[in-house]
Amino acid sequence: MIMPTKEITRVHPETGATLVRGVRKVVLNYRGQSETIDLPGWYPENDLTADHGVHDAKDMQISDRAINRMRARLAGVMVAEEVREARRKLGLSQREAGLLIGGGPKGFQKYESGEVILSKIGDTALRLLSNEPSRISELKHT
């Protein structure tokens, strides 16, 4: 039986250059904000700028989530880490928070991963409850 081998190099689809798996620093800009991220991908060994990299969907999740952080800040809503901290302060599972506060059973998983930003109304409810955790019981009985 032939065992599959792990791909070590790849050929750039446009330039034909040999690519290796690596991580490069990339600066993302969004509406006046800037964030530097470590972006995994396939890069020519001598390309330290990431200008000629090839990225798959999983690689791009990192840049998508960084852009969502910037979008959240511009919208004045909590970023993923703040959502997680507030939910934990309330003693709720992600599923419970999604059902009580909004977003559905998988909503908080997406908010906390940075895949989706919290709505303004969800942000307001979470902030108010986080400041007065005892009020969560009011939602549980409605």
Rank of each mutant, 00 (worst) to 15 (best):
Y43D: 11
E14V: 11
G114N: 04
N131Y: 08
R127K: 14
S93C: 09
I67G: 00
E35D: 12
I8P: 02
G41K: 03
L139C: 07
Q109C: 07
D123W: 01
H55W: 15
R10E: 12
N131R: 10
E85D: 13
W42A: 07
R71Q: 11
T49Y: 03
E96C: 13
E81R: 06
K120F: 02
E7D: 10
E7V: 15
P44F: 07
L74Y: 02
I117F: 04
D123K: 01
P4R: 02
N46P: 10
R71C: 02
S34A: 15
K106A: 14
T36Y: 15
I62D: 05
D123E: 05
H55K: 09
P13C: 08
I8F: 08
E115V: 04
L100H: 01
F108G: 01
M78W: 06
G107H: 04
R135M: 08
V54R: 08
K6M: 12
G91E: 14
K25D: 13
S113E: 08
P4S: 05
E14M: 12
G22L: 01
S63D: 02
P40R: 10
R21Y: 13
P4D: 04
R95A: 06
I67P: 00
L90C: 12
L128G: 11
V20G: 09
V116F: 13
S93Q: 08
V116W: 12
D64I: 06
R95V: 07
I121C: 07
R127C: 11
H141K: 15
A80N: 06
E138K: 10
I67H: 03
K106W: 11
N46M: 09
A75C: 08
L99D: 03
R88F: 12
D56Y: 13
R21C: 04
G107E: 02
H12G: 15
D123L: 00
V27A: 14
E132C: 07
D51S: 02
R84H: 06
R65D: 00
R69P: 00
D56S: 12
T15F: 08
F108H: 01
L100C: 04
V79E: 15
G91C: 11
K106M: 07
R88Q: 15
V83H: 05
L39D: 04
E82S: 04
A17K: 14
E96M: 14
G104I: 00
T9V: 10
H12S: 13
T124C: 08
E112F: 06
N68Q: 14
G91I: 06
R65W: 02
A75W: 03
R84P: 05
H141E: 15
Q109E: 12
R21E: 13
T18H: 01
I2K: 13
I117S: 10
M60K: 13
E7N: 10
V54S: 10
S119N: 06
N68Y: 01
D123C: 06
Y111Q: 05
L39M: 12
G98H: 02
